[in-house]
Design a protein around this nucleic acid. Structure first.
Length: 851
DNA sequence: CTCTCCCT
């Protein structure tokens, strides 16, 4: 028998556990730690014949390593060695080593925090940093501190920051072991640039595969981020490969049969290319791989506390993942690894993967802590503290579900939820559904949502309706043949769902057996109240969720035709999320189950279309407007405020200005502008708008529409800002008209664009008058207390402009002679005296016939 | 072309 690397460290591990009670073992894959360490420790005196718990991250691993250990003892599983995973338990009265998945361990320690029958807990593959192992270790450490000082803890992992683990375990001794593997030569092949653009990863990958094939022999494993990339690379290869090479896709959503094809040995002389996701990094081992090609990318779930939803993102792998991938080429012989990034970029990679505790939905995690009696994670020891925003979001959801109270303490309902061993949303749904006699359907829906979708559609036949899935499950239960065009089903997943549904129903004591798929939406609304969504006005296939987010279907379908839906799987786009799975819902169902959460408020607002103030009593469920009732008795004060807001928005022109009032306003502004009448109030539009509350508001009482606005007494409102004296001052110093020598009254223009509210006020008002009407007047007429001469626009008999002046005296004296000469030529029959100051002014348009 | 992996 070959030497197992971990065996030379067993003595150190025993000693560390005996004296410190805690230890950390770092050993690469292939060191044999998972199966050798637990068996080697079984007879240690400090164990006092108590059990060893071995925690595994995957069900498959738990089952197979229990089988391996039992085999080494020449026993069957269930004797000394047993295991317990979800839906499967093989543990007998003599079992000393229990191999359990991490989730099972959480249930065990919650049920019995002191773990009475256990002497040692081993965390295997701790470097994966699943949220369950982080939680398990934290609870275990507290149990040791408070209840069980003789309980021992061993953490085993591949490469990770073992020093940090040792620290939170009170400086536990660290034991490092070598692995057993063959050297792998690494080549960096970064994507090329073409026309300043990086060549897509699929093309780069296909090129690298061609190069690897020509330079080496043996089978190839290619790591890609997802199904899309796998399919695209496969189609690129189709064109270039000969018949001696076979391409196999490998990803989680393939059926077991399709996955098994990867392992079939090929006839001699043929080569295998496996295009895989990160599933081949740890979960699945393929023999005979000599070459690894690594795209350097992976797809992971990111939870967003803002939206409360998770979405998939494609990110660069960590150095530890890249090394793990490379190691796949050196399992049986020396190998080669091509990395599709540069050596420089390699330095920029993160050392380790981001632990789940920092990136996933924490709802279940927060409820486990509440069940443990902890409302803030800071009360326990963590390698990485969960982020506050995510944890708060989780607590908020738990409050909505009624699982914790305002203080963050678990409620009786929360205790039922945590015992169900499901996501809190789903457990809550089942409990609520059972009250309606639909517990079994809820168990089925929960089981379905826990699995991946078992339907694969042909081309564009996508259907996001959950009822279709429920009917297919029902058909399988009733042993009916599935005859649906355009879809393929994965029966293995359906059978797992049925098994899981039965298990949950049994665990929660659900008796009633009837199921009605039409109830799906009503049940799911309890699980996802924040994703109840309402169709948006005039926009096909778009919906608004109760949490105020936009969502849409890519095409019309049996769910999208409803006014209300429950959107289940969304792509996580925070602005406008694509819906992959949904259930129909209705206003009636919403009213039946959520009326206690409805909020009502009186809304008074301006209706642009009707030009009226409109008062309604609005009923909301979150962001959704459920009902609206008109109110006839509108609050006057609020109506005034809305009118004022509307006038400020649209402008003062909304008010019924008269010519007289506009003139008064302009003359007021003119006078104030001269600086000689400082006590006058500011009558500009800006000032009037700013002070509307004081001068206009009292006159708006009882006004509710634009039409009514036309009837208000604007003059009184405007004059209320002026004293009697000020009004008189304006009339006297900025008159509307001036009487000229001919005796006619001529208007003064104070503004450039007369008649408009926003007109520009002139420095001097304009007086337009025929030149002949001014005969005999020496001085320019003056206003504003004889301080400002008007701007005289002197006109010909026909009213054409002849001259502009503010100095009439100088005009008569200097310019008149030339003007007269010109005018006499054009209007020979008119009177053009030599001395205009002694002549009689005239306002006659037509000349006298007699000379 | 709708989506990585895993678990109570």
């Amino acid at each position: 028998m070959t030497l197992i690397p971990i065996q030379q460290h067993i003595a150190d591990i025993k000693k560390a556990l005996e004296t410190s009670g805690r230890a950390v073992v770092q050993a690469p894959p292939g060191a044999g730690k998972t199966t050798h360490v637990p068996l080697a420790l079984l007879d240690e005196p400090w164990l006092k014949n108590k059990k060893i718990l071995l925690l595994e991250p995957r069900r498959l691993a738990a089952r197979s390593c229990a089988a391996y250990m039992a085999d080494r003892l020449h026993e069957k599983v269930g004797q000394t060695i047993g295991y317990q995973i979800r839906l499967d338990r093989k543990i007998g009265p003599d079992t000393r080593i229990e191999v359990v998945t991490e989730g099972v361990f959480t249930r065990q320690i919650q049920a019995d925090p002191s773990l009475e029958e256990v002497g040692l807990v081993i965390f295997d593959e701790f470097h994966e940093r699943n949220i369950h192992s982080d939680l398990g270790l934290a609870l275990c450490l507290e149990s040791v501190e408070a209840l069980r000082d003789d309980l021992r803890i061993l953490v085993m992992s591949a490469t990770m920051d073992v020093a940090a683990v040792s620290t939170i375990m009170d400086a536990a001794p660290v034991i490092v072991s070598q692995g057993k593997s063959f050297p792998v030569k690494t080549t960096y092949l970064p994507p090329l640039n073409k026309q300043n653009r990086t060549v897509p990863i699929e093309t780069t990958c296909a090129l690298a595969i061609g190069r690897a094939m020509s330079k080496n022999s043996g089978d190839i494993l290619v790591f890609l981020p997802g199904v899309g990339e796998i399919k695209r690379v496969a189609s690129l290869l189709e064109d270039t490969l000969d018949s001696g090479t076979h391409v196999f896709p490998l990803y989680g959503n393939l059926s077991q049969e399709e996955q098994a094809m990867v392992f079939w040995p090929l006839t001699s002389g043929k080569r295998k290319i496996v295009l895989a996701t990160s599933i081949a990094e740890t979960s699945i081992t393929i023999e005979g791989i000599c070459i690894v090609i690594d795209s350097g990318l992976m797809r992971v779930q990111r939870f967003s506390p803002q939206t409360g939803m998770s979405r998939l993102v494609t990110i660069p792998v960590s150095k530890s993942s890249a090394d793990q991938r490379r190691g796949r080429a050196g399992r049986t012989a020396p190998g080669k690894c091509y990395r599709l990034w540069s050596e420089h970029d390699h330095q920029l990679l993160k050392s380790f993967i981001k632990p789940e505790i920092l990136s996933v939905d924490l709802t279940g995690f927060a409820l486990e802590l509440a069940a443990w009696g902890v409302s803030e994670p800071g009360q326990l020891k963590w390698l990485d503290q969960p982020e506050k925003a995510s944890f708060d979001q989780a607590k908020n959801l738990l409050k909505i579900l009624g699982a914790i109270d305002e203080k963050g303490q678990i409620t009786p309902h929360g205790k039922k939820i945590v015992a169900a061993g499901l996501h809190p949303r789903l457990a809550h749904m089942i409990i609520k559904a059972d009250e309606k006699g639909q517990g079994l359907l809820a168990c089925r829906i929960a089981a379905f949502l826990n699995e991946r979708d078992f339907i694969r559609f042909d081309q564009n036949a996508v259907d996001p309706d959950i009822r279709l899935r429920l009917e297919l499950i029902e058909a399988i239960i009733n042993k009916q043949k599935i005859l649906q065009q355009g879809i393929k089903t994965n029966k293995r997943i359906i059978h797992r769902i049925i098994k899981s549904e039965k298990n949950t129903a049994k665990k929660l004591g659900i008796k009633l057996k009837k199921t009605d798929p039409e109830m799906a939406g009503r049940l799911l609304a309890h699980a996802y109240p924040d994703r109840i969504a309402q169709k948006r006005n005039n926009r096909d296939n778009t919906f608004l969720t109760a949490s105020g987010k936009g969502t849409f279907f890519t095409q019309t379908n049996t769910v999208s035709i409803n006014e209300y839906i429950v959107a289940l799987h969304l792509d996580g786009n925070p602005r406008n999320a694509k819906i992959f799975l949904a259930a129909p819902y209705s206003k009636k169902e919403l009213e039946l189950d959520f009326s206690k959460d409805f909020k009502t408020g009186q809304i008074i607002k301006w209706n642009k279309k009707t030009g009226m103030i409109q008062a309604t009593k609005d009923t909301f469920f979150g962001a959704l407007l459920i009902g609206q009732q008109a109110i006839s008795d509108i609050d006057h004060e609020k109506a005034c405020d809305i009118l004022i807001r509307e006038i400020k928005k649209t402008g003062l022109a909304l008010l019924p200005w008269t010519k007289r009032l506009i003139s008064l306003k302009q003359r007021g502004i003119f006078l104030k502008h001269t600086g000689r009448f400082a006590d006058l109030p500011d009558m500009s539009d800006t000032a009037l708008e700013k002070q509307m509350e004081t001068w206009l508001k009292p006159f708006l009482t009882g006004i509710f529409s634009l039409k009514q606005l036309e009837k208000i007494d604007l003059e009184s409102a405007f004059l209320s800002r002026l004293t009697w004296k000020q009004q008189q001052a304006i009339e006297k110093n900025a008159p509307t008209h001036i009487t000229v020598p001919s005796g006619s009254k001529k208007p003064l223009t104070y503004c450039r664009e007369n008649g408009f509210l926003n007109a520009t006020i002139l420095d001097a008002p304009i007086l337009e008058v025929r030149l002949q009407e001014m005969f005999g007047l020496t001085e320019t007429p003056k206003i504003a207390g004889h301080a400002i001469p008007v701007a005289l626009h002197l006109l010909s008999p026909a009213g054409r402009p002849v001259q502009i002046t503010t100095d009439l005296k100088s005009f008569w004296k200097n310019t008149y002679k030339d003007v007269k000469k010109d005018l006499m030529g054009r209007y020979p029959k008119h009177f053009w005296p030599e001395d205009p100051l002694c002549a009689m002014p005239t306002n006659r348009v037509k000349p006298k016939t007699r000379v």
